[in-house]
Computed example of a mutant assay.
Amino acid sequence: MTTDDPLLSADPLLSAGDLHITFPGRRGAPPARAVDGVDLDIKPGEIVALVGESGCGKTTLARSLLGLVAPTSGRVTFGGKPLDYAGRALKAYRKRVQLVLQDPSGSLNPRHTVYEAVAEGLRIHGYGGDEQATVADALSRAGLRPPERFFLRYPHELSGGQRQRVVIAGALVLEPELIVADEPVASLDASVRGEILALLLKLREELGLSALVVTHDLGLAWNIADRVAVMYLGRIVETGTVEEVLTSPQHPYTQALLSVLPEAPGDPVVLTGEPPDPSRIPGGCRFHARCQVLASGEAERAGVADRCRTEDLPVLSGGGETQVACHWAAVNVSPSGV
C-alpha cells in the first residue's frame, strides 16, 4: 500500500476504542477478559484481517463490533457516531453491517429455499421494493447465475461453495457498508476458497464494501487483506499493512504463526503449551510464557527479559501504521515497536 493511498487518510467507518469484554467466571473463578483493551479502525473500502489462534478473543471482538455483545467498557463507533444498543437503533445498524458465518450449512435453514434464505433480511427490515428483483440481484452479485435457477433449491442441493455464496447474497441483499466474515472459507475445499476470496475482493471493488475478515490463516490474510491485526489473549499485539506484517513480522507470536505456512523458510516454530486462560492473564507481556525469543535467551541478551516477565505493554492504536507490542522488538527490530 503506497503512502498516497486514500485508505491511509480516510476517517474510519467502524472504530473500536479501548474495548473491554469480560465474562463472569464459572464456579467462583475470576472473570474472563475475552477482549482486554483493543483499538481497531476499519476505513471505507478497506479489508482488515483479524488473525490469531482459537481462543484469542477475535470472534468475541467481531461479535461486539456487530452489536451482538455489548462491551464491558470502551466504545464502538460507526460513521463517527457511538453504537446505540437500543432495539430500533441496533436493528438499523445491523442493516449496515452484516455477518457472513464460517459454516454455510449451519447458517442456512435446511427447510428454507435459497430464495427464502436471501429474502429473510428484506422481510425483517420491512423492505418495500421489488423483493424478487432484489433477491435476484444479490444472488447474481454473489456469483449464482442465472439467479432464478437457484430460487427453489434447498441447501442440501448445493455445493459448499454455492452455499457460501447464498450466505454472502443474504448479506448483500441489504446493501451493507461493511461485512464481518468469520472464517469465510475455513469449511470449503481448497479449490473453492480462491473463488470465494476473489468474490469478496470483487465486491469491494464494485460496491465499495469494507470488511473485517476473522481468520486463523495468515495465508488467507495475505491474499485478501489491506491490513492485518494479530490478536493474542484479548489484545492486538501487532498491526500494519499486510505486506509489512507478513513479510517482516516483528512480534515473536506473528513469527511463529507465519513459520508454519507451507512456503515459509526454515523450520516451523512450535509454541509450547496452550494459550493462557483469559481469566488468568499473566503479568508482563501476555505472550511471555510461550515466547520462543524469551526461551532461547535472545531476550536476556537484549536486556529485556525481566521487562518481558513483569512490564505490561500499552494498547496499540487502531490506525494503519505498523505497530508491535513487544519489548524485544522495540529494541531489536524497529523503532515502531512499543
Score class of each variant (00 low, 15 high):
Pro155Lys: 04
Val237Ser: 11
Glu244Met: 02
Ala169Asp: 01
Asp18Ile: 02
Met231Arg: 06
Pro268Thr: 09
Val333Glu: 12
Ile21Met: 08
Leu294Glu: 02
Asp226Trp: 04
Pro6Trp: 14
Asn332Gln: 14
Val260Arg: 07
Val51Lys: 01
Thr247Ala: 08
Arg75Lys: 09
Val228Gln: 04
Asp182Leu: 06
Phe78His: 14
Gly273Pro: 08
His156Asn: 14
Gly319Trp: 01
Ala142Tyr: 02
Arg309Asp: 07
Gly55Lys: 09
Arg33Pro: 00
Thr60Ser: 10
Leu178Asp: 08
Asp130Ser: 11
Pro82Ser: 10
Tyr115Ala: 12
Gln162Ile: 01
Leu65Ala: 03
Gly67Pro: 06
Leu233Ser: 01
Trp222Asn: 02
Pro82Trp: 03
Ala299Asn: 05
Gly121Asp: 01
Glu311Leu: 14
Asp182Thr: 11
Val242Met: 03
Leu19Val: 12
Cys285Gln: 09
Leu139Tyr: 08
Leu8Pro: 00
Tyr253Ser: 07
Leu152Tyr: 12
Ser187Lys: 02
Pro276Asn: 06
Tyr253Gly: 03
Ile21Glu: 04
Thr60Ile: 12
Leu8Ile: 09
Ala221Leu: 07
Ser259Asp: 05
Ala186Pro: 09
Arg123Lys: 14
Leu8Thr: 05
Ser259Ile: 05
Arg286Val: 14
Val180Ile: 15
His156Lys: 10
Val114Trp: 10
Gly240Gln: 06
Gly129Met: 13
Leu209Asn: 07
Thr215Cys: 08
Asp84Gly: 11
Glu274Gln: 14
Thr134Gly: 04
Val35Met: 10
Cys285Val: 05
Cys56Asn: 06
Val76Arg: 03
Leu13Gln: 09
Gly79Ala: 13
Trp328Asn: 04
Tyr253Gln: 05
Pro335Asp: 13
Ser9Gln: 14
Ser159Gly: 11
Gly234Arg: 04
Lys81Trp: 00
Leu261Asn: 01
Pro249Phe: 10
Val260Asp: 04
Gly160Tyr: 04
Ala295Asp: 06
Val192His: 05
Cys308Ser: 13
Gln98Val: 06
Ala211His: 01
Glu311Gly: 01
Thr254Ala: 12
Arg141Asn: 09
Arg96Phe: 03
Ala92Asp: 15
Gln323Lys: 14
His156Ser: 14
Gly160Thr: 02
Val324Gly: 06
